[in-house]
């Protein structure tokens, strides 16, 4: 059933968020520490565990796939609710940060590729 997939996804997120909150309290940060990341690792682990394979027949998995496909639309809605007016007053920051991040990342690709090749040999 589709709801099994949605429920599994929801359970993973809730457990992740709870663990993230506990982790935050543990290290004394007033924040949820990596709850979403933990939830993702949990979902990958659960969906790859053989004992849960029964749960992931097509109708069930479509409950997860739907929300995965809703990711871009949700990001668009998220963009539409941002405080852009406040951000625009320091507009160059975003451009410079974005361009610099891409330039540095592009430059690293040949370096890492060489490392990977020498490791293979």
């Amino acid at each position: 059933m589709v709801i099994y997939g949605v429920g599994l996804l929801a359970a993973c997120m809730l457990v992740g968020v709870i663990l993230g909150d506990l982790l935050g309290q543990l290290i004394g940060v007033q924040a949820n520490v990596g709850g979403v990341g933990i939830a993702m690792l949990l979902l990958i682990w659960v969906t790859n565990a053989s004992r849960f394979k029964v749960l992931l027949e097509p109708p069930t998995s479509s409950g997860i796939n739907f929300w995965s496909a809703m990711y871009i639309p949700i990001v668009i809605a998220m963009a539409a609710k941002q405080n852009v007016v406040a951000a625009v007053s320091s507009g160059w920051l975003a451009v410079i940060a974005g361009v610099a991040a891409v330039a540095v990342s592009f430059a690293m690709i040949p370096l890492l590729a060489r490392l990977g090749r020498s490791a293979d040999e």
Partner: peptide, 18 residues
């Protein structure tokens, strides 16, 4: 729709493909 709840939910769902 663009709030923290649905956003995090969809992000977790994208891990399903991995």
């Amino acid at each position: 729709l663009g709030g923290a709840m649905f956003r995090d939910f969809a992000i977790v769902a994208t891990a399903f493909g991995a």
